[in-house]
Design a protein around this nucleic acid. Structure first.
Lengths: 226, 226
DNA sequence: CGTACATACCAACGAGCATTGGAATTTACG
DNA sequence: CGTAAATTCCAATGCTCGTTGGTATGTACG
């Protein structure tokens, strides 16, 4: 009755996207690129893999049109082809979290940290940050902050945190965030701050999660060097 | 600074979901299961593949926890583990449509049909259907209609359409829908109706797309035989 | 209780993918 | 213009996956 060969092609095309997100390394690349555009070298360095391997994975992502590249001097800068790619990564992670017990266990062990700011709605956090009741710090590297960050957030990269402690108030709660639920930067920041007597907690949102929830972002969402 | 081995496991878990949706056949299975639970045999028949192959793919989907199975007599009935799985399928398809030119071309060729009801918001269609200005027909097999269908939709399986033409009014517009943008049932229905003098058009939404857009569904969304 | 049926399991083959060694290409910089 | 740096391309290897032939398991039905 129907022509089965006709739409077989359609599913193959969608499967191209599926194949692109079927590798852990490529997912890691997508999450990094969701923080802002980056050169191959820095991506490879962050993942602790060979540059050639990173290049090969990026090629696969490019062939699925999830990323594009442009040349900037000696570097080739990769970036996501759209916000929907970051949203897809968030959706995938949420489905995995919802159905894969193993993932929830691994997440729980990794961030056994009791310093989670849970049960607070994003709107409430935003309102408190607006009023200055809490200080929201973005502990990712500065270029990622420059690309996009949460409203009222202050850039405080983990690498500079200890030397810039004086900038943070001791009398107000400090809320740290980083790249998302899988990122450990904010956990480390909370640990450091807690040891120095600060009242610090973390949220697991990154900019992608925040935006996927319909919340506003700030930042020159266009260009930023890696 | 950070422990890279710790969260390596996390990405592997998410990649399990990615691997599950990296095969065209498995995507087809997911779309069919999004219409309602079904036995292995009927899934294999619909895909025109060997039952053993369908079983193997379903096993892969089950290991990624995207589907579950239960026994009903001699049959093993598979169903999605949640609405979020159907939403993931919709998201994947939307990302593919947005970025893969090849997909848009293939889609355009397949449904070159000029009878698309485009540019009409879902809310407007719902309102017109409520007022009875249009007759919305669900041309999928009846069990899928029973599981879930659009509000005010009437079940009119394509297989029975020609013998039940008398039930449809000639003076009102008829809007057909089926399983989604990749499904050809509604195109065929529009063709048949058009040849008999009916004013018929189609929408590309299926129940998953409708629901993913935040629109309400009707139906005994629990049990239905395949 | 034995046969038919639906489905899962096991094995095997070929195709495709991840990874790394080595080389080519493009750009910047002196 | 030549050298260094960043990245891609090519080839080879080992592994995983899709597919199908054969078989086992569990259920219904006479």
């Amino acid at each position: 009755m129907a022509i089965p060969a006709a739409n077989r092609l359609l599913y193959e095309q969608v499967a191209r996207i599926g194949k692109a997100v079927s590798s852990p390394k490529r997912l890691e690349l997508l999450e990094l690129l969701a923080q802002g555009e980056k050169a191959v070298e820095s991506l490879a360095a962050e993942l602790l893999i060979d540059v050639r391997l990173a290049s090969a994975h990026l090629k696969a992502l490019r062939e699925a049109r999830l990323v594009t590249s442009r040349r900037d001097g000696r570097y080739i800068i990769y970036r996501l082809t759209g916000d929907d790619v970051a949203r897809l990564w968030v959706s995938l992670r949420e489905v995995a979290e919802a159905h894969l017990l193993e993932l929830r266990e691994a997440l729980g062990q990794m961030q056994a940290d009791p310093a989670r700011l849970a049960g607070v709605a994003r709107e409430d956090l935003l309102e408190r940050a607006r009023r200055g009741e809490v200080v929201v710090i973005d502990v990712r590297p500065q270029p990622e902050y420059a690309t996009a960050h949460l409203p009222f957030a202050r850039s405080m990269p983990l690498a500079e945190l200890e030397s810039r402690l004086a900038e943070l108030p001791l009398d107000r709660e400090i809320v740290a965030y980083c790249r998302g639920p899988f990122c450990l930067l904010s956990d480390e920041a909370v640990r450091v701050l807690g040891a120095r007597g600060y009242r610090a907690r973390k949220i697991s949102d990154g900019v992608s999660e925040w935006q996927a929830a319909g919340m506003p972002l700030e930042g020159s969402c266009g260009e930023a060097a890696a």
